[in-house]
Design a protein around this nucleic acid. Structure first.
Length: 277
DNA sequence: CCCCAGGGTAGGG
DNA sequence: CCCTACCATGGG
């Protein structure tokens, strides 16, 4: 993976087949990126505006230094993950092999853990366009302005201070109190986020499930997308279809260590199939 | 009017 | 353990 600077931009040479930004940023793991024109993406992460374009053979980070890439974006976009090895392992399975053929360019982002937690609290019994809208309004009201029309994701303190009342006009429905309670727990230390990256997965799950509004699905999504626990395996309505249709005897145990990655290929694949693409 | 959305909780068998 | 009603909100 060759990396070099061109003017003020940073270029990462990687074929689209190995890293597909479009499917990665629009596969339901993150909610703050837009694709204003094909191959061009804009969004906010870690309090910064990102402007990225992708061609067949390279990804270009606009106005980005090598230092910034190495310290923030390389990890966020998981450029160092060994997806070739994981895909080769998964390919023994027929369904996964098909899914990789259609969605093999997806990577698991390592997003901010608090942002991920809040985002997936909002996601419960909700649809993706509405989730995005609620998050955008949340950032506008309680985030920090970065540039015209762009806001950072709110801190735990900002959401805790807002409380349920301050969140009531964001279209969150009954989820407003879940957000307020979760942020409160993070600020007062009852929920320690950093330890969830290293705790045994069973203990990490248990800690998250103590929070009101976090059930199995929200916990798994947070662990996978916000704590980079690749063994986490979210099962939503789409994945239930996959499991019923292709894995009636259960998901193969040989894939458990990186089941979350497999899950993401399958999730994207079934959505492509059932929406007729 | 219905149903559904990357579900969770509380309550009752 | 299971099952079910209910929870706001908006789009189809």
């Amino acid at each position: 993976m060759n990396i070099y600077s061109e003017n003020k931009d940073l270029i990462i040479e990687i074929p689209r087949s190995e890293y597909d930004l479009s499917s990665t940023l629009d596969c339901g793991q993150c909610f703050r990126f837009k694709e204003p024109e094909p191959g061009s993406f804009r969004g906010v992460a870690h309090g910064r505006i990102l402007d990225i374009t992708q061609t067949e053979e390279a990804i270009r980070f606009k106005d980005t230094t090598a230092d910034e890439f190495n310290s923030i974006w390389c990890e966020y976009f998981d450029f160092n993950g060994d997806y070739a090895a994981m895909k080769s392992h998964f390919s023994k399975d027929e369904t996964l092999s098909l899914a990789i053929g259609r969605a093999g360019g997806i990577r698991i982002l390592k997003q901010d853990s608090f942002e991920t937690l809040i985002s997936f609290l909002i996601s419960q019994n909700n649809n993706i366009p509405r989730i995005k809208g609620s998050i955008e309004r949340l950032c506008q009201k309680y985030g920090t302005p970065i540039a015209e029309g762009f806001y950072s994701f709110p801190t735990p303190e900002a959401i805790a201070r807002a409380g349920q009342e301050g969140l009531s006009d964001l279209g969150l429905g009954y989820r407003d109190r879940y957000l307020a309670d979760c942020a409160q727990r993070v600020t007062d230390g009852r929920l320690e986020l950093t330890e969830l990256c290293s705790l045994p997965i069973a203990d990490a799950r248990k800690k998250l499930l103590e929070v009101t509004g976090i059930g199995i699905k929200v916990a798994e999504c947070s662990l996978l997308f916000g704590f980079h626990r690749l063994e986490a395996f979210p099962v939503d309505t789409w994945m239930k279809k996959v499991l019923e249709r292709y894995y009636p005897n259960g998901f193969p145990e040989e894939f458990t260590k990186t089941a979350g990655v497999a899950q993401q290929y399958l999730f994207h694949y079934i959505r492509l199939l059932d929406t007729g693409k």
